[in-house]
Design a protein around this nucleic acid. Sequence first.
DNA 1: GCATATACCTCGCCTGTCAATGTATATATT
DNA 2: AATATATACATTGACAGGCGAGGTATATGC
Lengths: 114, 114
Amino acid sequence: MSITSDLIRGHTETIIMANLYNRDSYGYEINKAIQEASEGQYELKEATLYGAFRRLEGNGYIISYWGNETTGARRRYYHITDEGKIFFESSCKEWEKAKNLIDTLIKTGGKGNE
Amino acid sequence: MSITSDLIRGHTETIIMANLYNRDSYGYEINKAIQEASEGQYELKEATLYGAFRRLEGNGYIISYWGNETTGARRRYYHITDEGKIFFESSCKEWEKAKNLIDTLIKTGGKGNE
DNA sequence: GCATATACCTCGCCTGTCAATGTATATATT
DNA sequence: AATATATACATTGACAGGCGAGGTATATGC
């Protein structure tokens, strides 16, 4: 992956929630989806991923249950709650604000500013 | 300030460098400039600001010197080095990439994704 | 005398990330 | 039968950036 995770830090939870918004999913699948969507530029480390799940569930934004796979490795599925949807939507708005703010603050340099 | 600093985390150094790109400045002034540019939405905490200066100087991206104020509090000025300018420009490119990536990863949810 | 603004600095804590490590099942290859 | 690879989950300990709280010092206004 080519993107520094320092820059993504703080958005991990939002990215995960985006992947749970329309359907239940599980860790491994979500991470694969992120890798594909980013065309290999980014992936979550497992410790980061599962740590985020723990926080999100602790906050009531997702709930988890074991899938009933009859074959292969077991999967822990996550389901977004109503509170989780609200959280996701407000996170998106925060991101829009932060994005514009950073753009503003960075463009102070390079051109004008004298 | 209304923006969560978690979302700005990782961009502190870039924001500071933007404020040093065209002219030398000092901590207090840079922070005021950030507050004004963000219309009060954001400010750096002093511990964060001075910690970032230390890192940037340690990496050779800025150099510092004491101003020769004859009155008022003393000021430590910072000057961006050539390496610092290169660092800033590459940080801006990183930000553009990260911005697009986060947009992509967040827009997975909310609409399509089934 | 006291508050406020300017201006700098540091210590210790908190939190998110990550490398390393471990568990377990299934399939393909040798 | 042994080995490698992919799927899938989980934890531990360390690290780094950010921050609250505290400290120092000068100048101005009330």
